[in-house]
């Protein structure tokens, strides 16, 4: 069954406060010219039915917990793809007062797509890499970085 997995990745795209450059590239990828639906990819907008979490932006403090919750709501096997320079260390937003300096210490990222902003080709390439990672993953539960009961309680994932 898992060999069909590669053919139907559904994407959850979340912008954690970036400049929207990456998001426009993602929209371009959905459009007629690049059409990532060729690979069966759909932008679902719903973590419960998604397989790939596509994160852009440097993670502002406000949306840090939202990102964590969205990640927790996704069923395994799942892949996290971080797109753009600011997801890795904050990019141009590095060390600003309101950012978390990238996704590194929040989620276990599987694939990084470099560039500011990355080209659509790079995005598609990254997604295909993500599929390879995804194929090898199992159904075991995956955790947040620095996972602990206190953290879950703090973000309201245990008792909402």
């Amino acid at each position: 069954m898992s060999k069909f997995r590669k053919k139907s990745p559904w994407i959850l795209h979340y912008n954690t406060g970036g400049c929207n450059g990456c998001d426009i590239e993602i929209l371009a990828a959905l459009g007629p010219k690049f059409d990532i639906e060729r690979f069966g990819m759909l932008n679902r907008g719903n973590p419960k039915q998604s397989d790939i979490l596509l994160v852009t932006g440097p993670v502002t403090l406000k949306c840090r917990d939202v990102l964590r919750r969205l990640y927790l709501e996704m069923p395994e096997p799942k892949v996290v793809v971080a797109m753009g320079a600011c997801t890795f260390g904050g990019g141009v937003f590095r060390d600003f007062y309101h950012v978390e300096n990238g996704v590194n210490n929040i989620l276990p990222v599987d694939v990084w797509i470099p560039g500011c902003t990355p080209r659509v080709e790079a995005l598609i390439d990254g997604m295909i890499k993500a599929l390879d990672v995804w194929e090898k993953k199992s159904k075991d539960k995956e955790y947040l970085n620095n996972h602990s009961e206190e953290l879950l309680k703090e973000i309201g994932a245990i008792n909402d």
Binding site: M1, S2, F4, R5, K7, S8, P9, W10, G31, P32, D35, E37, R38, F39, G40, K48, Q49, D51, E73, P75, E76, P77, K139, D140, K141
Partner: peptide
């Protein structure tokens, strides 16, 4: 004017969804 997924795409989705961890 896109290419679109293969015709069997819904069935790939089917098998993929069956393979997910149930929550």
């Amino acid at each position: 004017s896109r290419v679109g997924p293969p015709i069997l795409q819904p069935f790939y989705d089917f098998f993929k969804l069956m393979d997910k961890r149930p929550i």
